[in-house]
Design a protein around this nucleic acid. Structure first.
Length: 480
RNA sequence: AGGCCGUUAGCUCAGUCGGUAGAGCACUUGACUUUUAAUCAAGGGGUCCCGGGUUCGAAUCCCGGACGGCCUACCA
């Protein structure tokens, strides 16, 4: 036991365990058949009905010859009542040796107390698991953020809000799956270990496959494999799973994060736009019961239709109509005056991008589709027919955060090669020949989209840190 | 990587001007047969994050370090 818990408390619990053992109780019991979860038992309440329930002891109110205690399981809290005359001397004495945090199984009958609380009067009980360490304090909960993440089980025991966030995360993911499956999308799994990472520009994690004596990468995106499936005849496909990016930690970044990518053949960016809007609205209504989400300080209204605005119009809105007529030096001066730090080596596109991400993106609170992004930022999308300097994509921003990019996917292998090469520069390794070969066999035109699930969960549940929506977020390892 | 803030009992937190280390919950003992943060009485529990310095005297002031949080930077 490495926990810094005082000896007094642990020794007392060990003593209680031994006392119970001597009274014939197994400290770590076996399966216990329940009538149902506590919530089911409460829902089907009938005065005098016999029930079998199990849970963790969370509080007790001892009144000498009888005591009330609360049991808790994943579903609910339920009060149990132990009476000396009813249980018998020995069983009652043993019950008093229980510690908060112990799991017990109870056989008893349902009744209602004077104050109207549904309660199980204990006929018999058994010890299912002894807790040797104490749980966090019962009504302030556990606040130490580091401990909440490192010992998430304590956070989950102590903090109902935390349990609710993860229940909602699960529900959000389930609703997304069901929504897409109803539309005949097929879920697939593609490699997480890839000989060549692609589909995004990010530093990958590197690992080694000993059997083949070869270097492998944890995927930064599934995109290039899903597009191979489009070549292979899939027309509605999605993958919902983890990506890995070898980057820093922040309020909105975890090195492994959950992403859904969705592709639909013969569709385009507009099809994806309609899909994501309808799907997010559906999920919010199902899981949150409302389209007004976010926090009190930063409310978000998801009511459709969502705003759509070209990237350049947003920039002009903020920086003036003449922005794109300015030369590099004037742009730099104007950006600097607006408080955006500019690297002198940057061109117009980079300055504009910096202005967008520093000044504009965070102001887009309600859902906004930012469209017609500069082509050099997006190597995997089709160009707009009326203006080849921009691509036919959207960037969905909600609550000031990028939630989902959507593309009219590039399906021209010759242009794809050029765009890869332009992006790769000297680093020829970045060109995925195997993917280009697939595309040369003919990839249908398609709409594609990725949604950052963690960020979507943050947006819907009103959490402002990605760590609050990931059960075991990445942390700096502790020294032993 | 830089700036700011924090670290005191198992948990949540006070601690004044530098003068014997505190509360609630949890724990122990006792009273109590319908309680609800049960109540009442008594008790045990401390490397005040670590190391150094100033001082008659440091949880408190100074220096260095560790750990954490927030912001900035990095980040498709």
């Amino acid at each position: 036991m490495t926990e810094p818990v005082s000896n007094e408390i642990v020794e007392q619990r060990l003593k209680n365990m031994e006392a119970l053992r001597e009274m014939g109780y197994r400290p770590f019991g076996r399966a216990f058949a329940r009538s149902g979860r506590l919530a089911d038992v409460v829902a089907a309440f009938e005065e005098g009905k016999p029930v079998r329930v199990a849970g963790r002891l969370t509080t007790s109110r001892d009144m000498g010859k009888s005591l009330f205690a609360d049991l808790r399981d994943a579903s609910e809290r339920l009060q149990v009542y132990a009476m000396k005359n009813h249980l018998g001397e020995e069983s009652y004495a043993a019950f008093k040796r229980l510690d908060l945090g112990d799991h017990i199984g109870v056989e008893g009958t349902l009744f209602t107390t004077r104050t109207g609380e549904k309660t199980v009067k204990i006929d018999r009980w058994e010890l299912l698991s002894k807790a040797l360490l104490p749980l966090p304090e019962k009504w302030h909960g556990l606040k130490d953020t580091d401990q909440r993440y490192r010992q998430r089980y304590l956070d989950l025991v102590a903090n109902a809000e935390s349990r609710q966030v993860f229940a909602r995360r699960s529900a959000i993911i389930r609703e997304i799956r069901e929504y897409l499956c109803r539309l005949d999308f097929q879920e697939v799994e593609t490699p997480m270990m890839q000989p060549q990472p692609g589909g995004a520009a990010a530093r990958p994690f590197i690992t080694r496959y000993e059997a083949l004596d070869t270097r492998m990468y944890l995927r930064i995106a599934p995109e290039l494999y899903l597009k191979r499936l489009l070549v292979g005849g899939y027309d509605k496909v999605f993958e919902l799973n983890r990506n890995f990016r070898n980057e820093g930690l922040s309020r909105t970044h975890n090195p492994e994060f959950t992403m859904i990518e969705i592709y639909e053949a013969y569709s385009d960016m507009r099809g994806m736009k309609a899909l994501v809007e309808a799907m997010v609205v559906h999920v919010a209504e199902k899981v949150m019961g409302t389209l007004k989400v976010g926090t009190d300080e930063a409310p978000i209204n998801l009511t459709p239709p969502w705003r759509e605005v070209p990237y350049r119009d947003l920039v002009k809105e903020r920086m003036g109509n003449d922005w794109f007529a300015l030369d590099k030096a004037d742009m730099g001066r104007k950006a600097d005056a607006a408080g955006v730090h500019i690297d002198p080596a940057w061109g117009e596109a980079e300055i504009t991008q910096e202005v967008y991400s520093k000044l504009i993106e965070k102001t887009l609170q309600d859902p906004t589709f930012v469209t017609r992004l500069p082509a050099e930022l997006v190597p995997l999308a089709k160009r707009c027919e009326d203006d080849p300097s921009v691509v036919d994509v959207f960037e969905l921003v909600i609550g000031g955060k990028e939630i989902a990019p959507g593309y009219s996917e590039l399906n021209d292998p010759i242009e794809q090669r050029k765009r890869f090469e332009a992006q790769a520069g000297e680093d020829a390794q970045k060109v995925d020949e195997d993917f280009l070969t697939a595309m040369e066999h003919g990839m249908p035109p398609a709409g594609g989209m990725g949604i950052g699930i963690d960020r979507l969960v943050m947006t819907l549940t009103g959490c402002d840190a990605i760590r609050d929506v990931i059960l075991f977020p990445q942390l700096k390892p502790r020294e032993g």
